[in-house]
């Protein structure tokens, strides 16, 4: 475990020094993410000009929900996004060989090697928006609810990464996964809306088979309605099962990998 932690600190150091070499891109990316945050907030602000509730949530609640989603997106962009972008290229060029032969988990190395330092600033900004949304909330949220919410946001991040991996791993067989990746990004729209707007059966599917509602919508419910043990067990249980399934899928893919470079 300490070996992995030390390795990750090295990743961080390299990533920061690399990102500072490309200063213009550094600032472009910050502006882009700020615009993404603004667009999401404006979208819901305009909707609430025409309704008081959406999926049972008022404007103050939906702001926290959106801010939570922005934090998850910022963590994903910072920690995983660059790495997942490179994965199909490594597979197709045969560069994966360099990672498989190393004495650490290839999944760990390939998922966490590139830390996007420029997105890290946006993570701070997204965290600030979440803090602002929570502080301006007129009701009482409760410390326990808040702690569970923050913990479940981290869990939601892991789940988001796992789900994306399910769409990435087929590249070992298909050699191009552009369609699947586009499909995943399209499907993430489902998680950007309050869960109760969906009909019963759609909700059930989105909480089990393709559990995008567990990423942020249900953690927000825990914050507003209190920690329901069954709901929390479902969120953590589905994440654990999804993770084990993804690991098995990854190992199967590695067994099918034949280097393109040899």
């Amino acid at each position: 475990m300490t070996r992995y932690l030390r390795l990750y600190l090295h990743f961080l150091r390299f990533s920061f020094s690399r990102s500072l070499e490309y200063r213009m891109d550094f600032w472009f990316r910050i502006v882009m993410d700020c615009m993404f945050y603004a667009v999401e907030l404006i979208f819901f602000t305009v909707l609430y000009q025409h309704t008081d509730l959406l999926g049972g949530w008022n404007y103050d609640q939906v702001l926290i929900f959106v801010a939570g989603y922005l934090v998850i997106d910022a963590i994903h962009m910072t920690v995983f996004s660059n790495n997942l972008w490179w994965l199909p290229i490594y597979v197709n060029k045969g560069d994966l060989d360099y990672y498989i032969v190393r004495p650490v988990s290839s999944l760990f190395f390939l998922s966490l090697r590139d830390f996007a330092a420029n997105s890290f600033l946006n993570l701070i900004l997204a965290g600030g928006i979440l803090a602002w949304a929570i502080l301006r909330y007129p009701g009482e949220l409760g410390t326990i609810n808040l702690l569970w919410f923050l913990f479940l946001i981290l869990n939601g991040n892991l789940l988001h990464y796992i789900l994306q991996m399910y769409f990435m791993i087929p590249v070992f067989w298909t050699h191009t996964n552009r369609g699947l990746v586009m499909a995943f990004f399209s499907a993430t729209k489902l998680m950007e809306r309050p869960d109760r707007i969906y009909p019963k059966w759609t909700r059930r599917i989105l909480m089990t088979i393709f559990p995008v509602l567990l990423v942020i919508a249900l953690p927000a419910r825990v914050l507003f309605d209190g920690p329901d043990p069954l709901l929390i067990a479902q969120i953590l249980g589905v994440t654990a099962i999804a993770f084990l399934g993804m690991r098995a899928f990854w190992n199967l893919a590695l067994r099918n990998y034949s280097s393109a470079s040899s």
Binding site: T174, T176, R178, G179, L180, M182, A183, S186, A187
Partner: peptide
């Protein structure tokens, strides 16, 4: 890229 084409369309 037909598979990509149909997957993207259907999911979208």
């Amino acid at each position: 890229y037909r598979v990509d084409f149909w997957i993207t369309m259907l999911v979208n």
